[in-house]
Each structure stands twice: as structure tokens, then as C-alpha cells.
């Protein structure tokens, strides 16, 4: 039976039903891990560790979750906080080997992708970190500007500006592809 997030949270908190929480983990693991991989500059091991820690932290804090925001927004906020604080603490100790390995794997994968996807990736990588995160949260994950602002801990106006600038840049970079699609 596929219960919604609210029911699963209620079961987890009120009945101590860990199977309900496992369902939430399965529901969000792929999206969260993928998002964190981007945030961790391709370090997949670090991204998975952070995602795991975020789920554990969310579980412990679940009784305090009031449901003012969606569970996914709240989970992303926890995960982003963890990654940011990890980055602050470990700024000089980037696991360069892991990053290089991931990038090498990415290059192999990229070479297998179609042209549009490759250009999209390259256009995305031309954005600043904040712009990329804002576009990822709003246009890929479907979060509202307000939700993205609360996840990224930035003022709403700043997030809107990041999204608009990123969108304008992507539009100019991807225009040939877009025209090709529009013109058939």
C-alpha cells in the first residue's frame, strides 16, 4: 500500500513503525543522493554519506516536524545544512582522488550521452554554484522559490535572482537545441 508522506510520518512517530520510515527513505533516496552529488562536486561517496546522515538526523528530529513545510523540503534543508557545514569544516581536505575518479566516470558516461544532454550538463556547469543549486531545486525538483530559499538559507529575492540569471544564461547557451526542437 502506498501511503502519503504525512501518514508515513504519523506511523513512524506515533507507532514507532520503522518500516514506515523505510518507505520514506526509499521514496526520496535517489533524488536526494543525486542532488547531493551535484552539491559535493561529484564526490559520490561523500554525497551518499551526507544523504545517509540526513535521513538519520531527520528520523531523530521527526517528532519535532510540525508539517509546516513538505517533508521533502525539510529533508533537503537538513541535507543542505549538513553538506554546507561539512564543506566549511573540510574545505582544505577535499578528497581529490575521489573527485577525479568520479569525474573520470562522468566523462565516460557523458561520452555515451546524447548531444543535448551533454550540452545541458556543460551549460549547467557554466553556472555559479548558487545558480546551479537554485535551478536544480526549482526547475528539476519542482520546489517553489520560497522552498528553495528556505533550503539554501538565502533571502527569497536572492534565490529569484539566481534562478533568473541562470535561466537567461541557459537560454542563450541552449538556444540552438531549443530551436531544433521547436522547428522539428
Amino acid at each position: 500500500m502506498d501511503l502519503n508522506d504525512e501518514d508515513l510520518i504519523r506511523r513512524t512517530v506515533e507507532d514507532g513503525d520503522q518500516r514506515a520510515y523505510a518507505q520514506l527513505v526509499r521514496r526520496y533516496q535517489s533524488q536526494l543522493r543525486f542532488s547531493l552529488r551535484q552539491l559535493c562536486d561529484g564526490d559520490q561517496g561523500l554525497a551518499d554519506d551526507m544523504a545517509q546522515e540526513a535521513f538519520i538526523k531527520a528520523y531523530k528530529a521527526l517528532p519535532a516536524f510540525r508539517g509546516d513545510a513538505r517533508f521533502s523540503t525539510w529533508l533537503y534543508r537538513i541535507a543542505y545544512n549538513l553538506v554546507m557545514s561539512h564543506k566549511r569544516k573540510n574545505a582544505p581536505d577535499v578528497d581529490q582522488e575521489a573527485v577525479d575518479r568520479a569525474q573520470a566516470e562522468e566523462t565516460v558516461e557523458e561520452s555515451q550521452q546524447l548531444g543535448m544532454a551533454r550540452d545541458l550538463n556543460s551549460a549547467m556547469s557554466s553556472l555559479s554554484d548558487a545558480q546551479r543549486q537554485a535551478i536544480h531545486l526549482c526547475m528539476q525538483r519542482g520546489f517553489s522559490h520560497e522552498e528553495a530559499a528556505s533550503i539554501m538559507k538565502l533571502p527569497l529575492g536572492t534565490v529569484k535572482s539566481h534562478v533568473n540569471r541562470a535561466r537567461a544564461k541557459l537560454r542563450s547557451l541552449l538556444q540552438p537545441w531549443r530551436e531544433e526542437v521547436v522547428n522539428g
Binding site: 520503522q18 527513505v25 526509499r26 533516496q29 543522493r33 545517509q52 535521513f55 538519520i56 528520523y59
Partner: peptide
């Protein structure tokens, strides 16, 4: 991944 999270709860 899920099993590993659940084991640490």
C-alpha cells in the same frame, strides 16, 4: 542504501 540507513536508526 536504505538498509544501511535503517541499521543506523
Amino acid at each position: 542504501f536504505c538498509e544501511s540507513v535503517m541499521a543506523k536508526l
